[in-house]
Simulated scan of single mutants.
Amino acid sequence: MNDNTNLNEPLGDKSDELSLDLFIVLARAYNSVVSHSTRSIQSYGLNSTEFGVLDLLYHKGPQPLQKIGEKVLISSGNITYVADKLQKKNLLVRIASPDDRRVIFADLTEEGRSFIQEIFPHHQSVLVEAVKGLDEAEKKVAITLLKKLGLSAEDSFKQQT
């Protein structure tokens, strides 16, 4: 380090500093909102992944196990573990595909469907409460901007690999 370096000066320009500030604010906002969701989900004896699988099956119907992992962002090994746990709780059932023996579908049991129908409205109200800091117009703008940011970051990541 030379004598002309001021330790209080940022290393990059203002744009770099703004990007770091955005990252910190985004991470903190995400953590704050997710804490509401996590507490709600855990109050029903589930973890976030289990809830994600039940939510997907409730809203989209039966799904191939390998596709569930992609949609709720977990590995194929973990989806088997989560499906086993939900099956032991009698919330999920596995169904062999009639067209391809290699494909196994997951679906909700009647108990699973009743369970998610009962808890989802409360969970939705928890999420509404968690994001009430923005009005409707601000939420629309935030959705647009965050999609743009996510797609750009994804493209950049793909180009680096």
Results as ranks from 00 to 15, higher is better:
81 Y>M: 12
86 L>H: 07
56 L>Q: 01
107 D>Q: 12
36 H>A: 05
41 I>M: 07
27 A>W: 14
102 R>C: 00
23 F>Y: 10
45 G>W: 06
106 A>E: 00
75 S>F: 03
84 D>F: 01
105 F>D: 01
38 T>V: 08
59 H>W: 09
55 D>A: 10
39 R>L: 10
55 D>N: 12
25 V>K: 14
54 L>G: 05
57 L>A: 00
42 Q>N: 13
94 R>G: 08
114 S>V: 09
115 F>Q: 00
75 S>Q: 09
111 E>V: 14
19 S>C: 11
75 S>E: 08
81 Y>S: 12
61 G>C: 05
81 Y>G: 10
73 L>W: 06
70 E>S: 06
120 F>T: 11
107 D>I: 02
84 D>G: 01
25 V>P: 03
90 N>V: 11
120 F>P: 01
49 T>V: 08
73 L>N: 10
92 L>Y: 01
19 S>T: 10
39 R>W: 04
25 V>I: 11
118 E>F: 05
60 K>P: 11
115 F>E: 00
23 F>N: 00
85 K>R: 10
36 H>Y: 15
119 I>A: 06
36 H>D: 12
38 T>S: 06
115 F>T: 02
48 S>E: 15
95 I>M: 08
74 I>P: 06
101 R>Y: 08
74 I>G: 06
79 I>C: 01
20 L>G: 05
92 L>D: 00
67 K>S: 08
104 I>H: 03
95 I>D: 09
48 S>A: 15
17 E>Q: 14
49 T>K: 13
49 T>L: 04
105 F>L: 04
88 K>T: 13
37 S>Y: 14
82 V>P: 14
22 L>H: 07
90 N>I: 09
